[in-house]
């Protein structure tokens, strides 16, 4: 087991290095930060001086070495745009994104799992058809369109929910939460639905397919033949077996929820990481972009590593193949 873990850790390190290299390469093409940091009347020589101060005139390998060195030592530097320390900026925005992602995932599970079970058990019912078509529309329409539609319906026309922002927040130590205020929950509903819709569709269809598969297996047939109560068969025996792959996929998708919250955050002016990243692109705020990209890369790598290790712990065959 130990060599396997060590090997996976080393691989993950290489992936992170590749992510850093890609992010760094990207910065060559996002634009000129100095043009964004100065006004129109700034003299070219003052811009040049700023460029030197920021180290943008150093040779590319030197810049890359410094970039990786800073990341490794967790010295994230200061934002070009706001001059705040990047680490603090990111840390301030993480709660908003995590809470949004968590609630979105919760919605997708609470609706997706029962919905999937229902669709599997009653494949021909009109409600199932409606559910399947509805969720299909949900994935086909771009997220920002869904967001804007929800805003105009519930925010503008009906006036039930706020159209933007996070509502009132409460600070618990460094964590700023909107989950403890009525206002915060009201602000959370629309963005969480928008972000969770894709996951919901995925979960629903996965549960439905797995459930139909499991219902055909021998042990369910035996259970049926033995005359066990239907609820027990459906929810204990069938659903239990269905959930193993569902949990795996959902866990893997959580990284995606965090990474792809950019669009939702932008549409709802949700003050999370994604919005910060978008603002940073607009201003060519390279230090913030760098840390964001590497952080997202890290989330994906960490989740994948964790899943791999769990699998290895559960299934010895993976370890054996890995060692061969």
């Amino acid at each position: 087991m130990i060599p396997f873990v060590a090997r996976r850790l080393v691989q993950s390190l290489f992936v992170m290095l590749a992510v850093a290299a890609l992010a760094f390469a990207l910065f060559r093409f996002v634009g000129d930060p100095v043009s964004q940091m100065t006004g129109v009347e700034t003299a070219p020589e003052d811009m040049e001086r700023l460029r030197v101060e920021l180290g943008l005139t150093d040779p590319v390998p030197v810049q890359f070495a410094r970039f990786v060195g800073d990341l490794v030592t967790l010295d994230f530097g200061y934002s070009y745009r706001t001059r705040q320390p990047v680490g603090a900026m990111i840390a301030e925005r993480i709660p908003a994104t995590l809470e949004l992602g968590f609630v979105a995932l919760l919605i997708s599970l609470v609706v997706g799992v029962p919905g999937g079970v229902y669709a599997a058990l009653k494949p021909r019912s009109p409600a199932t058809q409606a559910l399947l078509i509805g969720t299909l529309i949900g994935v086909s329409v771009p997220t920002f369109v869904i967001g804007i539609l929800l805003i105009f319906l519930f925010g503008v026309q009906l006036g039930w929910l706020p159209t933007f922002g996070r509502g009132s927040t409460v600070e618990i130590g460094p964590w700023r939460t909107s989950l403890l205020t009525v206002d915060g929950w009201r602000a959370l509903i629309l963005p969480a639905i928008t972000l969770g819709l894709y996951q919901l569709t995925l979960t629903l269809r996965l549960v439905r397919a797995e459930m139909m598969e499991v219902m055909r297996t021998d042990h369910i047939r035996f259970a049926l033949a033995r005359g066990l109560p239907l609820t027990s068969i459906h929810y204990r025996h069938a659903l239990g077996n269905t959930l193993v792959p569902v949990v795996t996929i959902v866990a893997l998708q959580f990284g995606g929820v965090i990474a792809f919250s950019i669009v939702t955050e932008s549409v709802f002016q949700w003050p999370g990481l994604g919005l910060l990243f978008l603002e940073s692109i607009r201003f060519v705020d390279i230090p913030v972009m760098a840390v964001y990209l590497v952080l997202i890369g890290f989330v994906f790598v960490a989740i994948n590593l964790l899943v791999d290790l769990l699998y290895a712990a559960i299934d010895p065959r993976i370890r054996v193949t890995g060692a061969a």
Partner: peptide, 18 residues
């Protein structure tokens, strides 16, 4: 003052009275 980057969201915020 609240910055709203997305133009459609900003318009919705005005029309909803926020």
């Amino acid at each position: 003052y609240t910055p709203i980057g997305n133009a459609a969201t900003g318009l919705a915020a005005l029309l909803s009275g926020e």
